[in-house]
Simulated assay, not measured.
Amino acid sequence: MTTSAPTPEALSVLKPSVHGLVRALYRHAPQPEWPESTHRARYEEAAATRPTARSVRVEPVLLAGMDAEWLLPAEVRSEQVIVYLHGGGFIMGSLATTRPLATHLALATGRRVLVLDYPLAPEVTFPGQHTAILPALLELDRRQGGRNPLVLAGDSAGGALALGAERAVREIPGRRPAITALVMLSPLLDLRLVAPSIDANAPYDPQLPRWLLQRMVTAYLGSRSPSDPAASAVLGPLHGLPPTLVQASPNEGLAGDAQLLADRARRAGASVDSQWWDGMIHVWHAFAPRLPEASGALAAVGAFLDEAAA
């Protein structure tokens, strides 16, 4: 059973701006006895309390049989399109849970954002998510006549899917979508779950205890090994990455995954811009605009994309 309150020691490590949020997360922390349906319902309920950016227009679309959603800011300052893959540990998440974060991402970056509602585990296991995402990317590129360069982005498990999709796109023979940047927010990348940060940082954030991470990974992988580079793309070849941004907090459980990506990419000769935000929790970005650091992080994504596109 998860404790109902963070310790004073834990709060002393975190920024005061997230103290109230962390207390609320502890009160509503996931429990081991919950079935997937309860995890999903609670995830939806939590996201429903977060505001969307009112100036961003929402437009449903169907791509390769997949439900998706355009988030269109009133002022577009780049032809780049951000394709966003939501978090939720492969077992949760939807267009609705992603809408608050994604509308504020569209507003902060001045780019159109397309959120894909990919299939969830355990109903669909690996590589089912990838085999759904890739046709959607190809259809998007076809509809736009190849005119718009794409940014693949995602948070948590969506970061793993974004990295895997970038790897898959480059294997397409002939003309392929132009992936000009990669953005991962608090990514879950190493499905072996060997990062020491998972346990060391557990007191700071109750969102992803080890038992829940293991449950998510098991539901997603089915019979596949977590060491398979096709599933844990961070373990595979990382040469030739496009300009890549990773934002994480050194105090979150998945800090080790972000560091592993930076280390392996550097050894492969690829450049990864790692931005570390002290005293934050997993995917703090989801709490924009109420959390100043969330708005600041999304603005930094915009600055990174502007510089990468220059």
Rank of each mutant, 00 (worst) to 15 (best):
V151I: 14
V151S: 04
L152A: 10
A153V: 02
G154P: 02
D155T: 12
A157N: 04
A157S: 13
G159D: 13
A162K: 07
L163N: 07
G164F: 01
G164H: 01
G164N: 04
A165D: 03
E166K: 07
R167D: 06
R167P: 12
R167A: 14
R167F: 12
A168F: 06
A168D: 05
V169N: 01
R170L: 02
I172F: 01
I172T: 02
R175D: 10
R176H: 06
R176N: 00
R176M: 02
R176C: 00
P177I: 01
P177K: 01
I179V: 10
I179T: 00
A181S: 13
A181C: 06
A181P: 02
V183P: 03
V183F: 05
V183R: 02
V183A: 07
L185H: 08
P187D: 13
P187T: 08
P187M: 09
L188V: 11
L189E: 09
L189F: 11
D190V: 03
D190R: 08
D190H: 10
L191H: 12
R192D: 10
V194R: 15
V194Q: 15
A195F: 13
A195R: 04
A195E: 15
P196V: 03
P196Q: 08
P196W: 04
P196L: 07
S197H: 14
I198A: 06
D199G: 08
A200D: 15
A200N: 14
A200P: 09
A200L: 15
N201G: 13
N201M: 11
A202I: 15
A202D: 11
A202C: 13
A202M: 11
A202V: 14
Y204F: 15
Y204S: 05
Y204H: 15
Y204L: 15
D205C: 09
L208H: 02
P209G: 02
P209I: 03
